[in-house]
């Protein structure tokens, strides 16, 4: 899906847990997430802490969308 959205002309960032799969399917901007059942959260933390984690990941995703790239790029910290 990421690839088809990109092909249609929209910049897209993939927030996902299993980065090797994302690379295989051809996502270009990739932000690694927390865990498979809760990519943008962590139930072992408080709701406030979770939201902070989520905000951090979304900010990273927006940064990825604002970064010019020429090849597949994994945005870590």
């Amino acid at each position: 899906m990421v690839k088809e959205i990109e092909r249609a002309g929209l910049p897209v960032v993939h927030i996902c847990t299993i980065v090797p799969i994302s690379l295989t399917v051809g996502a270009n901007r990739i932000v690694p997430a927390v865990a498979i059942p809760h990519p943008l959260g962590d139930p072992s933390r408080t709701m406030a802490e979770e939201k902070e984690i989520r905000r951090h990941l979304v900010e990273k995703a927006l940064r990825a969308l604002q970064t010019e790239i020429t090849e597949q790029t994994v945005f870590t910290d």
């Binding site: 899906m1 088809e4 959205i5 249609a8 929209l10 897209v12 994302s22 997430a33």
Partner: peptide
């Protein structure tokens, strides 16, 4: 995704966050 992208573009969306 082809259909989703078509609708997004028609609605004036400029960027996508896709979560998996």
């Amino acid at each position: 995704a082809e259909e989703i992208a078509r609708r997004l573009i028609a609605d004036g969306v400029t960027a996508v966050i896709l979560t998996s």
